[in-house]
């Protein structure tokens, strides 16, 4: 049976839910599917979606993670929800810039700013 790691930490704030990626590297299809399942479970529990994704631990990711984020974003916007990414390291931010996904996602420097932006 596949080894399922607890790869996100979920914190419920006043008006938003903060999901922190625990892993330093997000690469394997299995990990990405696990993340998608975890994030979908979080969304399923929310009436008004206001989600912060915290990348503070993430040092490396593949383009498959960008795909996961786009699928998640589509689902959130279909439900008129809000999504902000935060604490993205300079190297990872460069990946967003190259792919021009900085035009698609709201990105904040840190969790506090992300929560303020969503308030």
């Amino acid at each position: 049976m596949a080894d399922i790691k607890p790869n996100v930490q979920v914190d419920y704030k006043d008006h938003a839910t903060v999901v922190t990626f625990v892993d330093r590297k997000i690469l394997e299809e299995q990990d990405i599917r696990g993340l998608q399942d975890s994030l979908n479970s979080v969304l399923d529990q929310m009436d008004d979606i206001c989600l912060v994704l915290d990348f503070c631990n993430v040092e490396f990711l593949s383009s498959a993670v960008l795909g996961l984020l786009l699928r998640l974003s589509k689902r959130i916007h279909e439900r008129n929800g809000k999504l902000t990414l935060c604490s993205i390291s300079p190297k990872i931010y460069e990946v967003f810039k190259i792919t021009q996904l900085t035009k698609v996602f709201e990105i904040s420097d840190n969790v506090e700013n992300a929560l303020a932006d969503l308030a």
Partner: peptide, 12 residues
């Protein structure tokens, strides 16, 4: 294409 979940490998 910007919103498609795939197709960024070669660009990167």
């Amino acid at each position: 294409n910007l919103f498609r979940p795939e197709g960024r490998g070669l660009l990167l």
